[in-house]
Design a protein around this nucleic acid. Sequence first.
DNA 1: AAATATAATGACCAAATCGTCACTGTTTTC
DNA 2: GAAAACAGTGACGATTTGGTCATTATATTT
Lengths: 232, 232
Amino acid sequence: MRKPPITIEDSKVPRLPSERPGPEGGKRDANRRQQVARICEAALELFCAAGVESVTIDDIVSKAGVAKGSFYRYFQGKEELVDALFSPVADRMREALATCELDMKQARGPSELTRVYGSLGLAVAGIIAANLGVLRLYLQESRGPDLGSRKPIVALSRDLEETAFELTRVAREHGLLRTDYDYRLGTLVSIGAIERLLAAYLAGELFTESTDIAGELIRVILDGIRAATPQA
Amino acid sequence: MRKPPITIEDSKVPRLPSERPGPEGGKRDANRRQQVARICEAALELFCAAGVESVTIDDIVSKAGVAKGSFYRYFQGKEELVDALFSPVADRMREALATCELDMKQARGPSELTRVYGSLGLAVAGIIAANLGVLRLYLQESRGPDLGSRKPIVALSRDLEETAFELTRVAREHGLLRTDYDYRLGTLVSIGAIERLLAAYLAGELFTESTDIAGELIRVILDGIRAATPQA
DNA sequence: AAATATAATGACCAAATCGTCACTGTTTTC
DNA sequence: GAAAACAGTGACGATTTGGTCATTATATTT
């Protein structure tokens, strides 16, 4: 348990040494992007293989073929790097959920509910298909302690869960869900099931076609909704 | 990523310095048990709070109020300590699943299947109720990389999953399950849902009574089975 | 092309961590 | 009670790690 150094809350990633120089299409700009990309790519692989906490800065720069000083030019430390890896994905996910929530508020009747969940599923599938490495890391780390460099991952996990609860709550208000029932249970069941199936799929444990997996997911979620419906 | 030292595969925990001395009811015996207990207790708390990989031997001995040399008298290192924490629970789980598998082989018809799953659920509930700390650690670590001191946890996770698959397979052969369907999907859904609900419950996120949670779990598992039943 | 601004580098330091061991304390045996 | 076996201790050396910085290399501006 290496004691974390005192850090000053700071701006976004990648970090600006003082201020980014003017020209944007220039060689500097390209080099910078390349350095950051190299670091991120190497880090993601290492994180997936050994876990965020176990990977050292030396491991990362060594694999990335970059000097240690360069790393600290772009990132304050591992936590900021992790945040940089997750930020874009997190944004897209939040966006998809927000859209879904709007849809949900206009939904009328059970069939509309199903349609709304369906289009959320499509959106999410697109996001994760484009970010398999990050997804894998997420599944691996999101239940760990909310400390150190894992913080951004756990924060995302909590955020998504919260939004999923909210979504179910809206569905209950606008749909036909019972109120004597803790709607979070069904939500948690869905999240757990989805994550477990995805993990198995990514690990190559399943020989099932992804369409079949999708079918199973739909079944789980619909069952979850149905259970919250007045004696369907 | 500290390189692991070369270790010789060795016998069980707790470790014998040369050979344990004769008398069993004596003071020595009591002291040894107390040392081991102190270490395990402190370690479990720290592991839950910060994650197995982040906790150092110094943290553990400091919290346990024990000298570092004493730690190494009883354990070869962190991995062996983790194994010592999980071994008893793992044994009881395997036992419960084995019993269930025998039951399952004698089950006839859907109602019997339900009964068999029910009694497995009771057995498992008893085990985890008596080992909440270990359960929490399991949920937190079981999806991490299979390296270092996390190994025993991941190994248990894989083992349990394998057995759960086997159980479903037996149910399919003896019950009425479709064969054109990857029976592992339903199993994974159940595992994921159970684990997620337990994690939320342990984290105190749920104000639901544990009986209601149990009801939700039963629903999930039965739905999982039903889905594998010829067009119920 | 010279001057300036920005970026990359890796040797270096301090702190942390592991695992050992010579020594002291305690229990058992004779 | 003396001797022998076992257990507990924490200082120590070796290694690893995070983070810095003077120096060198590269890009941009003049």
